[in-house]
Each structure stands twice: as structure tokens, then as C-alpha cells.
């Protein structure tokens, strides 16, 4: 159903390395091979997008905090200072 964007790699699930047969030459390990227990490994593109989403959510939350604060002040109005002590 889902189609990855052209040139984009999907997240891959790390698999344990196959045991090397006794006496055979050890194969060179490919660069950036995930550790056997690494779980889901994100591509660089996926990490970049996750970071962008996190920043967007942080921005929205920060904005909401500010909005709620300002609306509270506005709704209280100036008379909030004129209360009996």
C-alpha cells in the first residue's frame, strides 16, 4: 500500500549475522552494519524527518503555552490587581 519516495530507503530491521563456516575466510564487514540487537534502524533521511517533526511539535507546544498565558492575562483583565488584600 505504502510507496517509498524515489531514492528513499525504508527502515530496516537488523538481522543477526550468519555464523561463519569453520575454516572459511572471514568476510569483510560492510560499512555501517547494524549491531545484531539494534532493532529498527532508521535511515539518515528518516532521522532527519523525525528531527524535523520533533522540532515542529516543540514549536507548536511552545506557541500554545504562550497563547494560553496571554489569553489568561487578557481574560483576567486589569481588575485582577484591584482585589482586597
Amino acid at each position: 500500500m505504502s510507496v517509498a519516495k524515489p531514492g528513499q530507503k525504508r527502515a530496516t530491521v537488523a538481522k543477526p549475522k550468519a555464523a561463519t563456516a569453520k575454516g572459511s575466510k572471514p568476510q569483510p564487514t560492510p560499512a555501517r552494519q547494524p549491531a545484531p540487537d539494534a532493532g529498527v534502524v532508521l535511515t539518515d533521511e528518516q532521522k532527519r524527518r523525525r528531527r524535523a517533526r520533533s522540532l515542529a511539535i516543540a514549536g507548536v507546544l511552545g506557541f500554545l503555552v504562550l497563547l494560553f498565558y496571554v489569553v489568561t492575562i487578557v481574560k483576567l483583565g486589569p481588575n485582577v490587581l484591584n482585589r482586597p488584600l
Partner: peptide, 16 residues
């Protein structure tokens, strides 16, 4: 396998 292959978490803020 195909049905479970839908990759969540791939979207950018622009997609949302």
C-alpha cells in the same frame, strides 16, 4: 507482509 510494510513515521512536517 505487504500490509504490515506500511512505513509510519516517514512524513515531514510539510506532509502534515
Amino acid at each position: 507482509a505487504g500490509a504490515s510494510d506500511i512505513a509510519g513515521g516517514m512524513a515531514s512536517p510539510g506532509d502534515f
